[in-house]
Structure formats: structure tokens, C-alpha cells
Design a protein around this nucleic acid. Sequence first.
DNA 1: GAGTGTGAATAGTTTCACAGCG
DNA 2: CGCTGTGAAACTATTCACACTC
Lengths: 254, 254
Amino acid sequence: MATGRTHRPATRSRGIPEATVARLPLYLRALTALSERSVPTVSSEELAAAAGVNSAKLRKDFSYLGSYGTRGVGYDVEYLVYQISRELGLTQDWPVVIVGIGNLGAALANYGGFASRGFRVAALIDADPAMAGKPVAGMPVQHTDDLEKIIDDNGVSIGVIATPAGAAQQVCDRLVAAGVTSILNFAPTVLSVPDGVDVRKVDLSIELQILAFHEQRKAGEESAEAAAVLPPAARAAGEDRKGPDGDVPAVMPA
Amino acid sequence: MATGRTHRPATRSRGIPEATVARLPLYLRALTALSERSVPTVSSEELAAAAGVNSAKLRKDFSYLGSYGTRGVGYDVEYLVYQISRELGLTQDWPVVIVGIGNLGAALANYGGFASRGFRVAALIDADPAMAGKPVAGMPVQHTDDLEKIIDDNGVSIGVIATPAGAAQQVCDRLVAAGVTSILNFAPTVLSVPDGVDVRKVDLSIELQILAFHEQRKAGEESAEAAAVLPPAARAAGEDRKGPDGDVPAVMPA
DNA sequence: GAGTGTGAATAGTTTCACAGCG
DNA sequence: CGCTGTGAAACTATTCACACTC
């Protein structure tokens, strides 16, 4: 993913590792919860547990941001919330457009977590003329024709694509041409974008397939005990895995 | 405190690296598209382009599955579709339950990609008695009370959680107790599960925050040119980063 | 004493580049 | 030849373990 090439002077890169960036939101959420309970400080151990990582990783992650803790004590919750928010760019307002107001798009529009931290749904856009003007999540759906104007008027740099797969690339191209440089793609397609534009994807069926892979392994590996516990539907593909290549059951058409 | 072990390091994944597993669904999708166009063979270069990765990575990935290509020619599309499907466990049927039929849960239930490959929505479950019996995506919603029975009757081993954050852990615990060993979590919470249970999460606001991080960097790094192109809303946080620790602007809302 | 911050060790992933097969 | 398959190199990420500070 992240197609964008970010040139870095190589010497003294003040770069935060991507893996760390991906965990900052997790820490932030845990910290916010602590903050709401008025907890003043946390240790790396406690916070790590709340965020579902181990403490060494968390400390290493924080070390990239700076020395924000106190030895022997831990981290000041409010201070860390601020520092991470700032690092993530959440101290500013990010107007976002959602394109494709079907079931999923509407669900996203209604999702509260959106507005929670720095993000604001600036517009809902759909290609269906029948949708135009209809209110979704208290906001009128606008027609795709006005996409460019909407992006421009609202200073949008982040777009969410929730269209059918077939329309995604086209919508993506228009968003990018209109100035959007970050895209969150819910459509099951690979988007191609020019350098400098970031794309992240969320794909239900990919996630399920990854789970299925591991699920299959579980069923296969612990034959005895697992078989007893395993639900009936799992009883099916009972064959040697990883067979030495050679012949294949004639399952393929063609 | 359910300090339970979160996640399993995907330990002995039978040799195939986790990063590779995560890409197999991508290859499979690209291959399926080729298959539908009756393309008989592809080179690693072409397939890689279609899947949005580079060809060296793709070849390396496939090498973990076996030698399924032909030198000088490429890969047989149908054969690869079959091999990857089998590796992912998609040659069998995976009944899935969705718990939490709000906006998102309903959208997921309606999502076609579900049934496409090996997955079948076996039941929709919600805690709201008013929802019980109502049809969503042509299927009656069932009440949480019957969760265990539903899991058992249908031999479900994969559960999707689309409840509010507050209910997620509780639902998770019940799913696991009932025999579910893979969970796809859409609720913005860290779930803790016993060893042997896989959890994958999909989190809109985390993805947006990651995008915001990079977006902020873009705005900051190329000051001159970018500033001209950048939309107005991006004009905001302009301060020194990485200040030597000391004082903090009183920005936090308590 | 408690707990951070971080070099060093380890593990995992991507990329290179080319030998070798069809 | 063309293109796969793969060791080796390069890079990225995680974990260890302990010096250091409060």
C-alpha cells in the first residue's frame, strides 16, 4: 500500500517507523479512556495491556516521539494524549468526503467515531440522482457531478470511497485530480494513484480469508482434541495438506 | 480484569509467512478477474501489477506455496486459483455469524462479497428485542439470547462483531465460549481472547488517523509548492515539532 | 525501588540479481 | 530467449536486558 515515495535525506531521518504510526491511534484510544476516568499517570505496562501490545514495544514506540515519560513513575496521561494527537495531526480539523452512499457509505456516515477525533464529514456524494438531496446522517447527499467543487470548497484532502468496485478507480481519479491526497478505500479493488497520494484499504473479504487460512490450520493441526471440540461444519476438507505437487483433483473448469 | 492474552503470534503458520498470507486474497481476486476473462496464463509481472505489488514479492510469495509456474511462460490462471483457494481454506464452506445489526452490521449483511468465496452468513444476531424477527438482507435477525445455540447448530467458527464498543468484549467472550475461534472485530476496542483464538480488527478511525499522519507530513515537508496547492483547511497547526520536553501549550480540554 | 529509554540481538520482510528450466 | 524460483543482501520490526533516572 502507501504508494507514495517519501524522499528522505537519508542522514538523520526523523522518521517514525510505519509500524509505530499504525499503533499510535491504539495508544491514543487507550489514553483517552484513561483520561476520561481521570487517571493521571500510567506505566508502560498498564498502557500496553490496555492497548493490546507488549510494554517493550510501546516504550520503543514512544521513544521515537521523544522522552515523554518519567522514570520510576510512568507517563502523564494528558500530556501523552496531547503529544500523540499532535504527532498524528489531530489537533487540526480534517474535512472528509464519503463517496458512495449505499449501505456501507451510509453506515460510515452515521458512524460516530468519525467526528470524535479531528475528522468531520464535509459531504456525502453519490452517483445516483435519486439519492441527491436525500438526508443521510442529517446531511443531504450530493451528486457526483459536483465532486470537484465540493472538494475544493471544503478544502478536503481525505476521501473515503465506498462505491461498488467497478466505480472505485474512476472516483479515485476524480478525487485525486480535485486535490485529494489521502484515500481510504472500502471497495474491493486495487486503486492506482500517482506518487504522493496515500491509499489505505479496508476489505472485509480479505480479512475473512486470512481468518479462514488460520482456521483451517487449527482444524488440521490438532487432530485429536480439536476434532472433538470442533463444530460439525468444520468437518469437511479432510485431506492431506500440502500434498506433493503432482495431480490435482479435477476441480477446475476449463 | 480480563488481562487475557491477546492475539497469538501466528506462530507455526506451517511455513507460510504472515505477510504472504495477507496477500494471497489479493492475488486470488486478481486471478479470479483474469479467469472470468478467460485468460489462460499470466506472468508474475502482469499479475503483480493487477494485484498492486511488485513481481519479485509475488514470486517469492508463490514460492512458499510450491512451484506452480512454468519458466518462460508464467502461471496457469485456473490452476493457481485452485491452489490459492485451497491454501486459504476456501474450498470449504465457512458459516459466519454477524453480531450487532446496526447500520454497519446491516451493511455487512448486505455486502455481496461475503458469499462470494466460501463464506456464508449463517445468522444475524442482535441484542435489541425490537430487532428480533425483522428481516435484514433477507434473513430474520435473531436475539442474543440464542447466540450459543445458533453457533452450535450451524457449526460456526468465525464470528463478526459489529456491536458498539461497550458490548464487544462481552459478545466476544460468549462467542469464544460457544466455540468460535476466529473473530473479525469492527468495534473500536481491543478484544482479549484466549490463546488459540484469532482476532482481526477493522477500524475506520485508526485508518483515518494513519492517513492524517501522513497528510500532515506532506503539508509540512514541501512548504513552498505544496502550500500553493494545498486546500485551505490544511492551514492550521504550524508549530515547532520535537520541542525539547518541557512545557506544553494548554490545549487539552481536560 | 520502580519503571523508562535504548543499544544490541533476534526475527521477519522485501528487494536484488541471477542461475536454471522450459 | 523469457520468466520462474530462490539464495543472499538489505531493510524493517520486535524483543531482550539493563543502564540510568526519578
